[in-house]
């Protein structure tokens, strides 16, 4: 293990990480800045079920919406929900997870309580929360945070407990470091890779749930696009040959989820290698 191995140069060898980051960045940039060729919530009755062409890059659907404009517009809604949920889970879960690595019976009880949450399927919880809070898709964030925060805590705790047994932690205790210093100076930097990887996985899970909810028609009101709604709208058209209506939003979900998982996999490998 030399310093050179952890330099950015070798990161280029991690294709998945770079592919994933490129795709996710492109999607975010497109969602924020891309000018839309057509109004995503105003259908054109004269252009119904058009195949992809120079005028309509991804074709149009049965109402006359431009699929390309709506795929981009949907990213503005779906990605922030997924990332927001994942990041909030990390922000809450990491300090709590670190705290539970301190010795004490309280942390054991907390973890048992959290197991109950984890046993609950995210999608079912999400459906319950979204429908009970006025059918607004934004509320899915609560479901995501409720499920992903305990996952993050559990992971940080199990890694943290292993690292706590390290000699360098014992050395820090022997020099008189306070618990807070041990948590944030010695433990936290050694779980950074895991935090990033888990946040990425959480975002992928969240995106799937957001898409599934809107596919089921939960939390969305008609003209507003979401990838799940669009897939649903095109699902019946697949058999009659209008494949483009659900294919493109489907590809968007697939690319985003795959990219987030690729990022997580490579982060695991990179951080594992630089620390041992």
């Amino acid at each position: 293990m030399t310093a050179a191995e952890s330099s950015p140069g070798t990161l280029r060898a991690h294709f998945g990480l770079w592919f994933g980051l490129t795709v996710i960045t492109a999607m975010l940039v497109a969602a924020v800045f891309a000018p839309l060729p057509y109004d995503p919530i105003k259908p054109n009755a004269d252009a119904v079920l058009q195949a992809p062409s120079a005028a309509y890059w991804m074709g149009t659907d049965s109402i006359g919406f431009d699929v390309f404009s709506r795929v981009i517009e949907a990213a503005r809604r779906d990605l922030p929900l997924a990332f927001g949920g994942a990041i909030i889970s990390a922000v809450i879960g990491v300090p709590l997870g670190l705290a539970t690595t301190l010795k004490g019976r309280a942390s054991e009880i907390i973890m048992r309580g959290l197991d109950a949450f984890q046993a609950f399927p995210l999608l079912v919880l999400a459906i319950a929360i979204v429908t009970l809070t006025g059918n607004r898709l934004e509320m899915v964030i609560f479901a995501i945070v409720l499920i992903e925060t305990p996952r993050m805590m559990r992971l940080i705790r199990s890694e943290g407990l292993a690292i706590r047994e390290s000699r360098f932690i014992e050395a820090a205790e022997a020099m008189g470091a306070r618990p807070r210093r041990i948590l944030f100076v010695h433990l936290l930097p050694n779980v950074t890779g895991i935090i990033l990887a888990q946040t990425s996985i959480a975002a992928a899970n969240s995106l799937t749930v957001v898409a599934a909810l809107s596919f089921l028609g939960i939390g969305v009101s008609p003209p507003d696009p979401s990838w799940g709604v669009m897939i649903q709208a095109g699902a019946r058209l697949m058999t009659s040959g209008q494949w483009w209506v659900s294919l493109f939003p489907g590809v968007a979900v697939f690319l985003a989820v795959m990219s987030l998982n690729l990022i997580a996999d490579d982060l695991d490998v990179i951080f594992e290698r630089t620390s041992r």
């Binding site: 390290s166 000699r167 360098f168 014992e170 050395a171 820090a172 022997a174 020099m175 008189g176 470091a177 100076v185 010695h186 930097p189 050694n190 950074t192 630089t274 620390s275 041992r276």
Partner: peptide
Amino acid sequence: QRARIGVVFQEPFEQLNPRLKVGAIVEEP
């Protein structure tokens, strides 16, 4: 009191936090 007692462990690498530079490790006390 811990400032009055130093300790050196058996494992040269495991006693040093891999995420801290040598300067930060030595100055921590």
